[in-house]
Amino acid sequence: MRPLALALAAAAAAAALSACAPLIVGGAMVGGSMMVIDRRTSGAQVEDQGIELKAAAAVRDLATLGHVNITSYNRMVLLTGEVPSEDDRQRVERAVQRVENVRSVANELAVAGSSSLGSRSTDSIITSKVKATFVDAKDLQAPSIKVVTERAIVYLMGRVTEREATRAADLARSVSGVHKVVRVFEVISESELANLQRATQPAQPASGAR
């Protein structure tokens, strides 16, 4: 394994082993420290943080047993983890849909017993390996793609073009240990991407300026 992948995997595994809470906000299985480039507006980033906190409180109020992860990206909420019954699964989704500013909910909760600490540690390592693979790819802006892994299923979030979405999914599938890849992307056009890239470029000095 490459040195970068090893370092990321070790850090993620340590974080997973130290986490005991059954409710995870913001996708704790995500290497958030790599978020250097963000295609959301600053307002959307703040709203996503608020959505995750409010959704976590709403789910906690349900007193639902299980293990629920809540990740919001550009007001699109991804629910992953395990709950005891289909009724619990639907109750969690309805509670999150009622949270202010939520635009849509992708309910990927499984009706099953809670995953083990060992399984979550493995998921953290898979997430780190996927992100390291994205970093190595020269045709992707790795920090603009959020990765969440649950039971070796990799979920990909972000504002990407169809070209980027296909490339990222193919790379994630190539990582050892990944059972399945689920795209939860917001797909934008190539022209929208070009506009985003121009907006983030530093201003050039005027001609003749000293």
Rank of each mutant, 00 (worst) to 15 (best):
T41K: 09
S42M: 14
S42W: 15
S42F: 15
A44Q: 15
Q45P: 05
V46L: 14
V46H: 03
D48E: 04
Q49A: 14
Q49Y: 10
G50W: 07
G50A: 10
I51G: 01
E52D: 07
K54M: 12
K54R: 15
A56V: 10
A57V: 12
A57M: 10
A58F: 08
A58R: 01
V59G: 00
R60H: 11
R60M: 10
R60P: 01
R60I: 08
D61V: 07
L62W: 02
A63I: 06
A63G: 09
L65T: 15
L65C: 14
G66D: 11
V68L: 11
V68C: 04
V68H: 08
V68P: 00
N69H: 13
N69S: 15
I70F: 07
S72E: 12
Y73T: 00
N74S: 13
N74H: 10
N74T: 10
V77H: 01
V77N: 03
V77P: 00
L78C: 04
G81V: 06
G81T: 02
G81H: 05
V83C: 13
E86P: 08
E86M: 12
D87R: 12
D87T: 13
D87E: 15
D87S: 12
D88E: 13
R89C: 02
R89T: 06
Q90P: 05
R91K: 15
V92R: 01
V92S: 02
E93F: 02
R94E: 12
A95D: 06
A95G: 09
A95T: 09
V96K: 02
V96W: 01
V96T: 04
R98D: 08
R98C: 07
R98E: 11
V99L: 02
V99E: 01
V102H: 08
R103M: 03
R103V: 02
S104A: 13
S104P: 02
S104R: 14
S104V: 08
V105P: 00
V105K: 00
A106C: 04
E108L: 09
